[in-house]
């Protein structure tokens, strides 16, 4: 079953075409890779999928519902969450609070219940704290739960972003370069983390430059170049695809 379908997405920024008729569909439970040279439009594709950028044309379908035109928070509510290539944590909040913000759309205490500290509000808060600890533990950061997110190392911040995205109870996770800037052992950690997330039945779409990670982890891979989808298939098919080789050699030359 297809949980995420991008249909004919076009997007240009002031005459520069960032996406030109890109279509792809992601099946439930798979790890789907998106690769391509810098500036190919990968991040823009995530921005369009999560509604933070409105496409010029095309549709985004999540679990058979057309979500094109919905605001980003409504997309998250429908079970799709993301991380950012340039990490966007709430730096002056603690790790635990960061993860609890992710639970916002799965909890319901409004102003009145919050200020009156009703029993429902208190138990919701308690459960949110426990779940935040579980998620921090899952990504290996629970010992820093009360520290401010800003003090974490680069690699730890990327893991915290994943925990925060998981906190939304997403069934589809979009990860934008989750191991960028990480050393080998941290990359290995993330490899195991993503395997564990997929094991929970969560669908993962992964933008990554680390070819080793993509080839080991992804069942299928799509290749973007200059806003066009130039190839899609299994890692072994992609590796030998002439257009892909040309795009990568071309980009290295230029």
């Amino acid at each position: 079953m297809e949980v995420l379908k991008l249909v004919n997405i076009c997007k240009s920024f002031g005459g520069v075409s960032a996406l030109n008729g890109v279509s792809l569909s992601v099946k439930k439970g798979e790890i789907y890779g998106i690769i391509g040279p810098n500036g190919a439009g990968k991040t823009t594709l995530f921005n369009v999928a999560t509604a933070s950028v409105r496409p010029d044309s095309g549709n985004v379908v999540v679990n058979d519902e057309d979500i094109t035109g919905l605001p980003p928070h409504a997309v998250t509510k429908r079970g799709m969450a993301r991380t950012f290539q340039n990490i966007r944590l709430f730096n002056r909040m603690t790790l635990q609070e960061n993860v609890m913000v992710g639970m916002h759309c799965r909890t319901g205490s409004g102003v009145l219940r919050s200020v009156l500290r009703t029993s429902g509000q208190r138990s919701e808060e308690r459960e949110a704290k426990i779940r935040a600890m579980e998620l921090l533990d899952f990504v290996g950061l629970s010992k820093y739960f009360g520290k401010k997110a800003g003090i974490l190392s680069y690699g730890q911040q990327r893991k915290l972003e994943i925990a925060r995205a998981l906190a939304t109870s997403a069934s589809i996770l979009l990860l934008d370069e989750p191991v960028a800037g990480m050393n080998e052992s941290e990359t290995e950690d993330v490899y195991h983390l993503l395997t564990a997330i997929a094991y929970r039945g969560i669908t993962i779409v992964l933008i990554e430059h680390d070819m080793g990670l993509v080839m080991n982890l992804c069942g299928r891979v799509a290749v973007l170049d200059f806003g066009e989808l130039i190839a899609a298939g299994t890692p072994s098919e992609i590796k030998v695809h002439p257009l892909v080789i040309e795009a990568y050699l071309g980009s290295e030359r230029g």
Partner: peptide
């Protein structure tokens, strides 16, 4: 702290 991140975490 970050409106874009807040919105993408499901906050209206």
């Amino acid at each position: 702290m970050d409106e874009t991140a807040a919105e993408s975490m499901g906050i209206n």
